[in-house]
């Protein structure tokens, strides 16, 4: 949209006095800043000799989480691929080989070079299957090597889970709603199973209060 001439306001620069036109005070002020840095403690991190101190919610290499039975937790819903602004996720879905799940990713590839590490995939995932770890030093000799497939991404999970470097955002161990276990109708008890303790928006109790209430109701 063009700017109308009457909307333009011209501002004259402030006039400098003699003191300012000497420039010597400004030069001395600058030198003062430099000198003060010489006596402060150093902030430079000596990477790679020293490990950098990264913020704990740093977003690095992806991992694909495993469920309780060690299977890939991803349900191949493509929501990460849909959310991805860099189009770096490629999924091929297939009917799952397990009776309690319907769909799983046959192929899951992330192009780690194309990825911009924005974390949208993590936010989009309804089952918390994809997470960004704090691993940052990602190297490879070829571009092909940087296409991380399902096995590689699961191995990142194994590595980070064993090292205890789960991202602080993780919900590992808690299933999202889309991976509710399917319970056949004849095996359902009167109030067992999933959804029984699900939080309702109008329910403003804390988690622990709810757990106590649920325990009391099951004992009753």
């Amino acid at each position: 949209m063009p700017i109308k001439p009457e909307e333009v306001r011209w501002v004259a620069p402030p006039r400098m006095g003699l003191w300012e036109r000497l420039y010597i005070p400004a030069v001395l002020q600058g030198l003062g800043t430099t000198l003060s840095h010489m006596v402060r403690p150093a902030v430079t991190q000596q990477f790679p000799d020293e490990e950098p101190k990264l913020p704990p919610n740093y977003r690095g290499v992806h991992r694909l989480n495993r469920d309780e039975q060690g299977r890939v937790k991803c349900v191949a819903c493509y929501l990460c691929a849909t959310a991805c602004p860099a189009h770096c996720i490629d999924i091929v879905a297939a009917p799952s080989p397990w009776p309690d799940r319907e769909k799983y990713p046959e192929i899951f590839v992330i192009d780690e070079l194309r990825c911009i590490y924005c974390g949208m995939c993590e936010e989009a995932c309804p089952v918390d299957a994809i997470e960004l770890t704090t691993l940052y030093d990602l190297t490879g000799l070829t571009r092909r090597e940087m296409l991380f497939d399902k096995e590689k991404l699961l191995s990142v999970y194994d590595q980070t889970a064993a090292a205890g470097t789960d991202p602080p955002r993780t919900r590992r161990g808690r299933l999202g709603p889309a991976s509710e276990p399917l319970v056949p109708i004849n095996q359902l008890g009167p109030s067992s199973g999933v959804g029984a303790n699900a939080a309702h928006p109008s329910d403003n109790r804390t988690d622990s209060e709810r757990a106590v209430a649920a325990k009391a109701s099951s004992e009753a």
Partner: peptide, 14 residues
Amino acid sequence: GYSRFKEDKIIRPD
């Protein structure tokens, strides 16, 4: 946008 249903859903086999 949410469910008020707190009981168990009837899940039938595919």
